[in-house]
Simulated scan of single mutants.
Amino acid sequence: MDRPTALTPLRYVDVGGRGPEDVVADAHGRVLTGVEDGRILRVDGLAEPKAEARVETLAETGGRPLGLELLPENVLLVCDAERGLLRVDLTDGTVRVLADSVAGERLRFCSNVVALSDGSVCFTVSSRRHPLEHWIGDLVEHTATGRLLRLAPGNDTPEVLLEGLQFANGLTASADGSFLVVAETSAYRLTRYWLTGPRAGRSEPFVENLPGMPDNIWRGTPDGPIRVALAGPRVPPLDLLHRATPAVRCAAARVAVHAPFRPTGTIGVLAVDDTGRVLQHLTRRHSRFRMVTSVCETGGRLILGSLWERGLAVCEAPVPK
């Protein structure tokens, strides 16, 4: 991995709600996000340096929206940590539940979603043990209960493609649609799951030993780079704890979920290609905008989302090499 490049902030935009966890850009350069109180927001004017950003509410999920996937005809897929996989009509705000259980088990922590060309939808579940409000417990306990699921067209019950993932998070497809890339946050890696070809149904490491914890993934165009938000740097004591016995990790997790938490000031964004080569590593230490959980690009700017903050950060977007 080449030497990191500075991640340069340009402005901060308050969106009027806490925790804009994922960000996606539409064809008009507007950014959609979901906040803690359940609202789906659209923010316009972020790439205009002197313009006042305009924030409008498009829908309310009635839960806690996380990962988003924008579809044609003004439709948004939403991974809701409380309600499951949702379909939101952005023209009238109608919300429909596509899936809220798998094999009789309630979906309690849906994380990110991607739509495939065959009409199916794949999405991740970060943890089967810890809910969103106790996310740090899963990172500490290292439960390996994350899943990759697929919902076929016309079905309301997903199938499990892959399980045993360490806090499954961001998700995107390769340019040719032959595989998926899944972020495993607490394993500091990206994993490839093959959809087609002789290795279909198998998984393998795609990029390992990342410099931080990968969160949501953004790909603006099929031939564009895969951008990965790094929610925080590697934590050596946490790496050491992950090698402890399950009983020790479980006890540590019980403490962690009740302990005060404040994210570090180190944030980052990676750009990766379909071969797993890291094209760019943007980072900033002592950042006032903390816990970057998502990134998208619009108007030549990078837009950063955060589970922690009450707004979005607009940054320079150096071209990946």
Rank of each mutant, 00 (worst) to 15 (best):
W194R: 13
L195V: 11
T196M: 14
T196G: 12
G197W: 00
G197R: 00
G197C: 02
G197L: 00
G197Y: 00
G197N: 02
P198M: 14
R199P: 10
R199N: 13
A200T: 06
A200E: 10
A200H: 12
R202G: 03
R202L: 10
S203P: 11
S203N: 13
S203Y: 10
S203L: 12
S203R: 13
P205L: 09
P205F: 08
F206Y: 06
F206V: 04
F206D: 00
V207P: 03
V207W: 03
E208S: 15
E208W: 08
E208N: 12
N209E: 15
N209R: 14
L210M: 03
L210Q: 00
L210G: 00
P211N: 04
P211I: 05
G212N: 01
G212E: 01
M213A: 14
M213L: 12
M213P: 07
M213V: 14
M213K: 15
P214R: 02
D215S: 03
N216S: 06
N216M: 05
N216W: 00
I217N: 14
W218L: 13
W218Y: 15
R219A: 03
R219F: 06
G220L: 01
G220W: 00
G220T: 00
G220K: 01
T221K: 09
P222W: 02
P222T: 04
P222C: 03
P222D: 05
D223L: 07
D223E: 12
D223P: 08
D223V: 09
D223M: 06
G224D: 05
G224C: 09
G224N: 06
P225H: 06
P225N: 05
I226K: 00
I226H: 00
I226E: 01
I226G: 00
I226S: 00
R227D: 14
R227M: 11
V228T: 02
V228C: 03
V228K: 01
A229H: 03
L230Y: 01
A231F: 00
G232F: 04
G232M: 08
G232S: 09
P233D: 04
P233E: 04
P233L: 04
R234Y: 08
R234F: 08
R234K: 11
R234L: 11
V235F: 10
P236M: 05
P236I: 02
P236E: 13
P236V: 03
P236Y: 05
P237W: 05
P237G: 08
P237T: 05
P237R: 07
L238K: 04
L238R: 07
D239A: 14
D239Y: 09
D239N: 13
L240T: 14
L240N: 12
L240S: 11
L240K: 13
L241C: 03
L241D: 02
L241R: 01
L241V: 09
H242K: 08
R243F: 08
A244I: 06
A244L: 07
T245K: 10
T245C: 10
T245N: 10
P246C: 02
P246S: 02
P246F: 08
A247W: 14
A247K: 07
A247N: 15
V248A: 09
V248C: 11
V248N: 12
V248Y: 13
R249T: 06
R249P: 07
C250F: 15
C250S: 09
C250Y: 15
A251E: 10
A251K: 12
A251I: 15
A251R: 10
A253E: 07
R254S: 10
A256K: 05
A256D: 06
V257G: 06
V257I: 05
V257W: 02
A259C: 08
A259G: 04
A259Q: 07
A259W: 13
